[in-house]
Design a protein around this nucleic acid. Structure first.
Lengths: 173, 173
DNA sequence: AATATTAGTGGGTCGACACCCACTATAGGT
DNA sequence: ACCTATAGTGGGTGTCGACCCACTAATATT
């Protein structure tokens, strides 16, 4: 596909010599020109910063995702969470364990199908989720600082479309 | 490759009565509403897919970044690469080692300052980089499929601004 | 009943990244 | 010279996310 794109690696003869002041220390244009790269890099920034905040509470991203899913869709069996969030059943078990231990969710055997464990969010869980949401928005303000409200909106909707479209494939955070 | 889970009708409509019927198995809106989340998720998709392609050649993202930097800015001492790419000197040493062993870069002691090792890209390296670039663009087409050319451009420029802005902080690839 | 299938667990592996420290060699400053 | 700072290397560490397998319990199938 490719086709017309700026002659990627233009090799500058390098201002070599005794004045290696590394003009501005910028990243290679041929990388910055790749949305793939920018996306993964900016995405990582967002992820890492959010993770940092969650870590302060001893939580990880999955914890938040699970809480959000429970809050949005109500009590669900673990298998449903697994499918919805595309994470490994075994990993979910661990997350659920932790959340339950901390009192953010409750687990109960489904009486109709006793193999299933239905998970529901507690009041404490909802409160926590609200805080986490606030944290996430704070990170957002930090990361998207260079953009004004309108631009953020545009970004958000583009990302959403990418996400929904073929952009999605497998598991993921 | 845990669950590839085509959301298609392959999944049983879950005739079980009271089940929440997992409407379309969508992710929680409260997450999708967070740019932070979308960003990290979509970013991760991009990253993972690109990494997969690189892995086919036994390469990692850093290898590509280093090659790009050498192609764009010409031969540089490792310290310059380290600063430009913000990666650990020790890690760069390993990357450079690997690239040199494969013949994609050459290392030579800087005669002016013999502490320094100047790294330069070889012809083979350039060829490789061109291929990697093509791969990256292929991934891009895959991931950004839902967007038309104009939208991709908008996304690209928004991301670029975010990147340049406060969006950047510490290391990371 | 016998067998297969599904839900959940526990216990691990693996690779990628980030990071750190100790150590060599060279250079610079005074 | 002496001492300090810089460049690069080697050999680690810790974390995290993804993944896999073996195993139990309960249900479905026939």
């Amino acid at each position: 596909m490719a086709s017309e794109n700026p002659p990627s690696a233009s090799e500058r003869p390098a201002p070599e010599g005794s004045a290696p002041d590394l003009q501005g220390l910028e990243l290679p244009p041929s990388l910055l020109d790749l949305s793939t790269y920018l996306l993964s890099r900016v995405g990582r920034t967002a992820r890492v910063r959010l993770a940092e905040r969650l870590a302060e509470r001893g939580l990880r991203l999955w914890d938040m995702a699970v809480l959000a899913s429970l809050a949005d869709f109500g009590p669900q069996a673990q298998r449903d969470l697994v499918r919805r969030l595309s994470l490994d059943p075994s990993d979910l078990a661990k997350v659920a364990d932790q959340l339950a231990a901390a009192g953010y969710v409750e687990r109960a055997r489904d009486r109709a199908d006793r193999r299933r464990v239905s998970v529901s969010i507690t009041t404490a869980g909802r409160a926590l989720l609200a805080e986490l949401d606030a944290q996430a928005r704070a990170v957002q303000d930090e990361v998207l600082a260079p953009l004004d409200a309108g631009e953020r909106q545009v970004l958000q909707s583009l990302l959403l479309r990418v996400h929904r479209g073929a952009g999605e494939r497998r598991t993921g955070l």
